[in-house]
Write a protein that binds this DNA or RNA. Structure first.
Lengths: 148, 148
DNA sequence: AAAGAGCGGTTGCGGTTGCAACGGGAATAA
DNA sequence: TTATTCCCGTTGCAACCGCAACCGCTCTTT
C-alpha cells in the first residue's frame, strides 16, 4: 500500500494551519496591516501589561529575534512603547500605547468573530478538537524535552 | 474579558503544526536532507507516477514557484527526472528515479512510524481529530471560493 | 575585587517564501 | 492564417525566517 500524503497528520495540520491563518489575515490585514508575529506580540501584551521580549518569546512560540523585530515595527507604528527595566538593565519593558490598545480591541473583536465562525463550522465537538490540539502541543513539548 | 491568545484556534493550530513539523523533520532530516516542500513533491510523485508541476501545485497546497524550485533541487540530487510532455510542450513530466523511489520508501517508513506514534499520543479519538481537520480545510476552501 | 560564566536583546547572514512579471507554447476567434 | 488570449514553468525581487554571533549587563566564583 503506497504512502498517502493526505492522510499524513503533519501534512494535514500544516495545510489547515496555513489556510486558517490566511483566512484570518484576509479579515483584518487590510484594515490593520498587522502580521502574524506582530499579532502575537500585541495579543500577549494586551493580557500581560508590561512584559519583556524574553517573556513573549517563551510564551508565544516565536524566536526572540522575531519578537525583537516585530516589536521594533510596532514601536515604529506607534502601537507600543519600549522602556528600560530599572532593576535589570538588560531587560526591556514593552507596553501597548493607547493607540495600540485601540487597535488590539478592534483585533479582538475580529478574532472573536472568526473564532465563533470556526466553532460553528466545526460543530459541537469543537471543544474536543481544541483539547486534542492541546494534547499534540504538549506531546511535542514533552518529546523535545526528553530528546534534550 | 480580555482576549486570550492561547484559546485562539488559528494560533493553536499554527503552534501545533510547526511543532509537529519540527518533530518530523528531526526524525529524518539528518538522514535524508529533504525539506518540507521536497517531501510533499516526492510523496505526491510516489503515488501518481508522472505528474506536472501544475498538478502538484494544485494538489499539495504549494505555490508553483516553490514546486518548481523543489523539483530543481530534487533533480539536482538525482531523486527525480524531468522530461517534456509530448502533447503539450508547455508541460513538464516529473518522475521519481529509482534512487528517489528508494528514498521515498525509507521516508514512508519513518512517516508511518511517526504517524502511529501521534495516533497513540492522541488516543482513541485520533480518527475523529483527523476528520475535523478535514472539515477545517474544506471550510477554508469553501470560504475562499465564495469570496472570489 | 576581578574574572568568568550566563543572560537579554539586537543584528548579520544564508536560505526560503510568496508574489508578480516574463517568455515560450497552445487554443480560440476572426 | 494571424492575432489575441490564455496557460505553464521559471526567474527576479523584496520580505521574512531561523540561527548564530555579538554586545552590554548581571550573577557567581574565587
Amino acid at each position: 500500500m503506497p504512502f498517502m500524503l493526505d492522510e499524513f497528520l503533519p501534512y494535514r495540520l500544516n495545510v489547515a494551519a496555513t489556510l486558517i491563518s490566511r483566512r484570518f489575515a484576509a479579515l483584518h490585514q487590510e484594515e490593520t496591516g498587522i502580521s502574524i508575529p506582530e499579532w502575537r506580540v500585541m495579543a500577549h501584551l494586551a493580557n500581560e501589561g508590561q512584559v519583556s521580549i524574553r517573556d513573549i518569546h517563551a510564551r508565544v512560540n516565536l524566536d526572540k529575534s522575531i519578537v525583537s523585530r516585530a516589536a521594533a515595527r510596532l514601536e515604529q507604528a506607534g502601537h507600543l512603547r519600549k522602556s528600560g527595566h530599572m532593576q535589570d538593565r538588560r531587560l526591556i519593558s514593552l507596553e501597548l500605547t493607547p493607540k495600540g490598545q485601540d487597535l488590539m480591541q478592534r483585533l479582538g473583536e475580529i478574532a472573536d468573530a472568526f473564532q465563533a465562525r470556526l466553532h460553528a463550522e466545526l460543530g459541537p465537538d469543537a471543544e474536543r478538537f481544541e483539547t486534542m490540539l492541546e494534547q499534540l502541543i504538549a506531546g511535542a513539548a514533552r518529546d523535545r524535552d526528553t530528546a534534550a
